[in-house]
Amino acid sequence: MKRPNALRWFASLSMLVLLLLMTTGCTESMIVLDPKGPIAEQQRDLMIISTILTSLVIVPVLILTVIIVWRYRDRTGRKAKYAPDWEHSTKLEVIWWGIPIIIITVLGLITIKGTYALEPSKPLESDKKPLTIQVTSLDWKWLFQYPEQGIATVNAVNFPEGVPIRFEITADSPMNSFWIPQLGGQMYAMSGMAMTLYLQADERGEYWGSGANFTGKEFAKMYFDVKSTSQEEFDQWVSEVKASSPALTLEGYQQLAEPAASDVKTFSAFPEGLFYMTVTKYASSHNHGLSWEDIQKIKIQE
């Protein structure tokens, strides 16, 4: 008597969850499945293909489980066969070693192809020249430098639509992970290294990005605004920033790097080679034996 009752419970609860999903528009806020760029789109497709492929096994097995459990439950007057010593069948076992092997082979081939195709440091095919943006993860904010435009921003990044963006990513803090869900997957921000990640937005819009790897106290405030605009709007934005914002000095950078959360900021200029200095101050084979503080002193005098 217990079982059907509990089953009903379970069914109604899952219906409730489903209903919540539908009515609250959660399906729309599943932004990973709502890509706005070529990388995120291919990654979404891979998710769907792999879900379908694995479902080919999982769904029948779930159904089979229910059927077997129902049919072979112990009750009086049961017609189903009982074979207590039946323990081996080469034919059957070959089948279920075989099915997963086939599915995994197919999925494996797709994955290998996808891994090479979507290698984050691979330039995107485009007739437009990529725009480079240098990203630094700080405690607890993101600094974006535009070496071609000579401007910098904090916790906000703007770029033109339809142009490949070459993100160069590093950290001047514990390692973080740079993620703009609607444009594509993550790349770790690690000190001493400049990681490359190509992304592109196919349409104008406002998105958001976040730090995905835990870095301490104010980690939950490491969101940044992402805005893709037309080329003209972008150019206009750049000149506005140049005209109206203060410049980021080395001292200003040091203050910025102090552990604290930050609002959106813009800078009309930044110290030349700042990104390079941030990366190399940790890649310190030539600084071996010097403390972190010592290294910082050296770099600042340069």
Partner: peptide, 8 residues
């Protein structure tokens, strides 16, 4: 385990 999807 699908590496490129795991980026998301």
């Amino acid at each position: 385990s699908v590496a490129p999807a795991d980026f998301q």
